[in-house]
Structure formats: structure tokens, C-alpha cells
């Protein structure tokens, strides 16, 4: 799914919700996942003018979950460790986006370089 404008955010959230409902994810975990997704999409729009999100249902043993991969061609993040710290921001936000998002999901993986932009991959398990 392509994200180019801020109007894409709400439909995107609805898509994530559809997937989450499909695997019977509980309301609380759904909310956490969608909030996390929303944060990442906003980052993408703000720092990279959009990008592509890949949504999929994954399963490991008996556990189902949802993986979201956010890929953008933006300037990249210089110091990931710094960006993952609470309260750090280059923009004028609260600086909770990345670290907060990490707390909301089960698995969080971020790769970034100036040449290839940033890729963030998150997983939320159904009962996670």
C-alpha cells in the first residue's frame, strides 16, 4: 500500500484493522498495533514524503500475528540509537514516535541509510 499524503493515513489504519480483525486479534492489541502503525506512517510522511507499506499475516507455530513493513526513500536516520531514545526529536514532535512504537509491538526492527532510506518492520502477535 502506497502512502503519499496525510489523507492516506486513515484508510491505511482501516486496512490494518481489517487484517487484525481477520485473525481475531483482541481490541487492546489491535489498538496498540494500529497506533504503532499510525506513528510510523506519520514519520514516513513527515521525513520522507511517503513510502510503501506492506501488510501481511504471519504465523509461527500456533500463534498468528501481523507484520508491517514500512519502506521509504527518505534521507535516512543518522543515529538510530539516538532516535530510539525517549524524548529525542529532530522535528518538532514529542519525540515519542520510535521508542513509543517499539513498546507497543512485539518485534521491532529498523534499518536506515542515507542512500536507501529507512525500513522499519514491526510484528504484533495476536496474543502478544
Amino acid at each position: 500500500m502506497k502512502i503519499e499524503r496525510e489523507q492516506d493515513v486513515v484508510p491505511f489504519r482501516n486496512r490494518v484493522k481489517e487484517y487484525a480483525t481477520k485473525i481475531n486479534m483482541g481490541l487492546l492489541n489491535q489498538t496498540k498495533l494500529i497506533t504503532a502503525a499510525s506513528e510510523l506512517v506519520r514519520n514516513m510522511l513527515k521525513y520522507a514524503n511517503g513510502g510503501i507499506v506492506h501488510i501481511e499475516v504471519i504465523s509461527q507455530g500456533r500463534e498468528n500475528g501481523i507484520r508491517l513493513i514500512f519502506r521509504d526513500q527518505g534521507p535516512g536516520i543518522k543515529d538510530i540509537q539516538l532516535a530510539m531514545k525517549d524524548g529525542y526529536t529532530t522535528g518538532k514532535s514529542l519525540g515519542l514516535g520510535l521508542p513509543g512504537t517499539k513498546r507497543l509491538v512485539n518485534e521491532f526492527d529498523i534499518k536506515s541509510s542515507a542512500e536507501e532510506g529507512t525500513t522499519v518492520s514491526i510484528i504484533k502477535w495476536k496474543n502478544g
Binding site: D86, G100, L104
Partner: peptide, 14 residues
């Protein structure tokens, strides 16, 4: 505020 939203906000640090 919905319960799930409140919990999420706290986890997020807001």
C-alpha cells in the same frame, strides 16, 4: 477515553 486507548497512550509514553 476508551480503555484500550488509555493503555496504548500509557505504553506510548503519552
Amino acid at each position: 477515553i476508551q480503555p484500550a486507548v488509555a493503555i496504548t497512550l500509557i505504553e506510548l509514553g503519552l
